[in-house]
């Protein structure tokens, strides 16, 4: 087994693009669930709308990066409004049902050939990042960063991704410590009590839903900009549940939690993948083939999550008194 390679691949995930993209999606969920008590099981849809919004605006409308970026955000904000208007007046469970159904519906809509003119159908969309990479100040070449060697494009997308994570995290810290954030936490605890104190609960929940959805769409844009390909198959419900795993790993009502949760999650995936592959290659696991390793590691993730629920229900950073799985 090549331990140096295992180490560099695993450590590379620490600041990987997907790590940042999932961290963003999970930060959106933290806004929804951790701070407002909204059960959103359709974060994949918000991320997908960001990704498709960006790609569509670039390829079909020929907008530049800024316009496409704004278009992706608007798409997810409109989606949040459409889902929120009928469901936010009802109990939290209804939002969960509607989001999971809407995300599934969007997933099929994105993949169907009917809308191929806009979404590329099952082939998806590609080569929409030219303007994004034109802002890259780093000269072409490969850079040895000690742990990993990256191309100038890979470095640029990481800078933007983690820059966005930092900006969003700071904004959320400011927001959640403000009286606005306090009102949201009150709604999480008991929305009728907050209503009786003269707050328009519906408006607060809507603001939270839109904000968390928009943050999720930023994650979606980062996710597809790294490879400049956007396929419907990315936005399956698995994406949503992996985001939830990341959120719960770190702690639902925290800002640092989803970021560290994402890093730990992807490092764990890479570590198990490389170690298992290494073991299969040296013949230590005769009952496994290389192709099965990819599946086995998710099984281990499930085990990991179960242990977490049992022994540390508040996540890495959560305050046990403030937020557990029972929300």
């Amino acid at each position: 087994m090549d331990f140096a390679q295992i180490f560099s691949l695993t450590a590379g995930e620490l600041f990987g693009v997907f790590t940042a993209a999932y961290a963003l999606c999970a930060l959106g969920l933290a806004m929804h669930f951790g701070y407002t008590g909204l059960l959103n099981f359709g974060q994949a849809a918000f991320a997908a709308l960001g990704a498709y919004g960006y790609a569509f605006a670039t390829l079909n409308l020929h907008w530049n990066m800024w316009g496409s970026f704004a278009f992706g955000i608007i798409c997810s904000a409109v989606f949040a409004l459409i889902m929120g208007i009928p469901t936010l007046r009802l109990r939290a469970d209804y939002l969960a049902i509607v989001t999971i159904a809407a995300a599934q519906a969007l997933y099929y809509a994105f993949g169907t050939s009917q809308f191929a003119w806009a979404t590329g159908g099952s082939n998806g969309l590609s080569q929409f990042g030219t303007d994004f990479y034109s802002y890259n100040p780093i000269p072409e070449g490969r850079y040895d960063l000690g742990i990993v060697t990256l191309s100038e494009k890979e470095i640029w997308v990481r800078i933007v991704a983690w820059g966005l994570v930092a900006i969003v995290a700071v904004l959320l810290v400011v927001l959640t410590r403000s009286p606005w954030g306090r009102t949201l936490k009150g709604i999480r605890e008991d929305e009728d009590a907050v209503r009786s104190l003269g707050k328009n609960v519906f408006v607060y929940k809507m603001q939270s839903l839109v904000l968390g959805g928009v943050i999720g769409s930023l994650g979606g844009m980062i996710f597809v900009l790294s490879s400049q390909t956007n396929q419907a198959s990315t936005w399956v419900s698995n994406f949503t549940f992996m985001t939830w795993t990341v959120l719960l790993l770190g702690g639902a009502a925290t800002i640092l939690g989803p970021i560290v949760g994402s890093a730990v999650f992807f490092m764990f995936l890479m570590l198990t993948q490389t170690v298992l592959e290494g073991l299969v290659n040296i013949g230590a696991l005769p009952f496994l083939s290389i192709a099965q390793v990819g599946q086995i590691r998710y099984l281990l993730v499930g085990l990991f999550l179960m242990l977490l629920v049992i022994f540390r229900p508040q996540g890495f950073f959560g305050n046990k008194k403030e937020m557990q799985f029972n929300g």
């Binding site: 009286p179 606005w180 954030g181 306090r182 009150g186 999480r188 605890e189 907050v194 104190l197 603001q207």
Partner: peptide
Amino acid sequence: KALSLLTVIDNMRLGAQDNPGESFFKS
């Protein structure tokens, strides 16, 4: 309906009206 996972003082602050910090943009 005490808001259990808010501190006592935050419960009280939530009872006040017309706090500009409770508006999204002003916060």
